[in-house]
Design a protein around this nucleic acid. Structure first.
Length: 280
DNA sequence: GCCAGCCTGTTG
DNA sequence: CAACAGGCTGGC
């Protein structure tokens, strides 16, 4: 479900509410969803910080009471995949259908990981070991970071020159955090057809695309993400970038720029929306 | 690179 | 009923 702007919005809403609270206990209702390979303690962890990298959320946890014999610093890595949600509850309530992991908080409430399709995961690591996760360790640069430059985009399009440009944007090793919505919207704004081969796009156009990616991601964060079907942030609030979408899920509608009918095709295995007049 | 598979729910 | 859904992995 969520891409970078949604995960970032979740991070911000949760951080404001639960930083410096203690996770008294972690309860797992479905063994596939919580991975605790190192057999780390699941009790009494202070939430120091919540970070985001690409579409991953990282909870930095320290032992509420320091010990010399145990790990005092661990990371809970959460990936929401398609339908994962993190929801704060003020009191202990009956777990909702599809709630698979529950973090019991010291304020009498809980943070619940809920995921209909069960693609998402909560993985516990001792601090530093999160890099043993291949998907995490190989993430490309953050689209809003200093190391995501136009030159970098040009370089990465050379490296994946046989791939479609949309395939490059969706490749988390190339750029971290872009998914189907923001790939389509960035390519629309840059005037690039999603099935163009990455190696056949001019440097000038890739420089425009670089700028449009940053623009779209920043705007979407400003709008607290896109609630197309069921995305909500950590407090259950919807985003409103769906009001700004030009092409995503707009097939059959008219292009906001030129009134041509938006089309839908399959690119890189994903449904892809574009304006056949604006995008070449 | 591509694409089936992982899951359940919703929509046509 | 089949097709599809905001993601990623692993096996060709």
């Amino acid at each position: 479900m969520p891409e970078l702007p949604e995960v970032e919005t979740i991070r911000r809403t949760l951080l404001e509410k639960i930083q410096n609270q203690t996770i008294k206990e972690i309860i797992c209702y479905h063994p596939d969803v919580l991975i605790n390979q190192e057999n780390l303690s699941l009790n009494d962890w202070l939430i120091q910080d919540i970070r985001r990298r690409g579409k991953y959320l990282l909870f930095d946890l320290t032992k509420a009471e320091q010990s010399t014999t145990e790990n005092n610093s661990i990371v809970a890595m959460i990936h929401l995949r398609m339908t994962g949600k993190l929801l704060l509850e003020d009191t202990i309530v009956e777990p909702a259908k599809h709630t698979h992991v529950r973090f019991i908080l010291n304020n009498g409430g809980s943070l619940d990981f809920n995921d209909v399709r069960r693609f998402g995961r909560v993985t516990m690591f001792s601090a530093g070991n999160e890099f043993s996760d291949r998907g995490y360790a190989t993430l490309g640069p953050e689209p809003l970071g200093d190391d995501f430059t136009a030159d970098y985009l040009i370089k990465i399009c050379q490296r994946f020159k046989r791939s479609t440009i949309k395939g490059v944007l969706l490749n988390q090793q190339a750029i971290a955090g872009i998914g189907n919505i923001y790939a389509d919207e960035s390519l629309f704004r840059a005037g690039i057809k999603p099935d163009q081969k990455a190696g056949e796009i001019s440097e000038e156009l890739l420089t425009v695309l670089h700028q449009k990616i940053r623009e779209v991601i920043a705007e979407a964060i400003g709008h607290r993400g896109t609630s197309f079907r069921d995305y909500v942030d950590g407090l259950g609030n919807k985003g409103f970038f769906q009001l700004k979408l030009a092409v995503y899920q707009k097939d059959g509608d008219l292009c906001p720029v030129c009134d041509t009918t938006i089309e839908k095709i399959k690119v890189a295995g994903r449904s892809t929306h574009f304006c056949p007049n604006c995008q070449k």
